[in-house]
Design a binder for these strands. Structure first.
Lengths: 141, 141
DNA sequence: ATGTGTGCAAACGCTTTGCAGTGGG
DNA sequence: CCCACTGCAAAGCGTTTGCACACAT
């Protein structure tokens, strides 16, 4: 996977070691990226590639990956943390009935917000747009 | 307070009882609304108006208020829950250094998102835009 | 040799739940 | 008068931390 190499390089450049555990977590994150996984889901997938990994290491690795900008923690009003690889901005639509999360492009809108806030003196690192309601499936039942 | 009466009526209309505890929580939420309070902060303020209230009741009341649309749980990637009275959409800017949260108007942008998604078959109940970065204070140090 | 990184298990902190009692409508 | 609601304390659950060990450099 080409993309994976990019992520691994980001880590190396920041004085963090590329351990089997960290590689396993990144691999898990890449594979699960379309479902906004929580720590437990990432943990279970990462075990395929590093069976001895512990949940604490997953949490510590997620912190490292957030710090180096590889992933971000998603701002959902959920009790558990959800994570995704950093990529171009998009809208998250979260269905309040079935909890499905949809991704919808929104580079343009995010960019406008970005520009306006930078003009006002804010340094913008991440724009996040979440929409809550009923998805087409749940809304028509 | 005029606004408070509106919130109380919403509750009454939904077959929920207007207890001193619930009134106290609503009053606390109104007073603290500009600081996106967590349950503990709401609890401490509510005790001014109902000294015997318990934290469990605060949590249960918050659930009721969310269900009736009086308040919403804010989608911040924080471990604790944060709440605010439902009002017209705005951007939250959350400083990653000092954790200050700023509110910035954005009715227009939210409305555009709203319209586009409704066209696609989603039923939108709540649009939430969060921006993360450094606030003017922290960015210039 | 040094210190970053790890697994385990225990601790932590916020939130939820069970239950017996209370009071609003 | 009945049942929604409450306070208390205990349990629950996701996350963090302390510690001894491992292993890269």
């Amino acid at each position: 996977m080409l993309q994976e190499i990019v992520e691994l390089e980001k880590l190396q450049k920041s004085d963090y070691r590329l351990t089997p555990q960290r590689k396993a977590v990144i691999k898990a994150l890449m594979e699960l990226d379309d479902e906004h996984p929580n720590a437990e889901t990432i943990f279970n997938r990462a075990r395929r590639y590093c069976p001895t990994i512990g949940i604490a290491t997953v949490y510590r690795t997620l912190d490292v990956l957030i710090e180096t900008g590889v992933i971000k923690k998603l701002p959902f009003p959920s009790r558990r943390g959800h994570y995704e690889i950093q990529k171009s901005p998009h809208i998250h639509f979260i269905c309040q009935k079935c909890s499905q999360t949809y991704e919808l492009d929104d580079e343009e809108k995010s960019f406008t917000v970005y520009q306006e806030l930078e003009k006002k003196g804010y340094k913008v690192r991440n724009v996040s747009i979440n929409v809550f309601g009923l998805c087409p499936d749940c809304g028509n039942k």
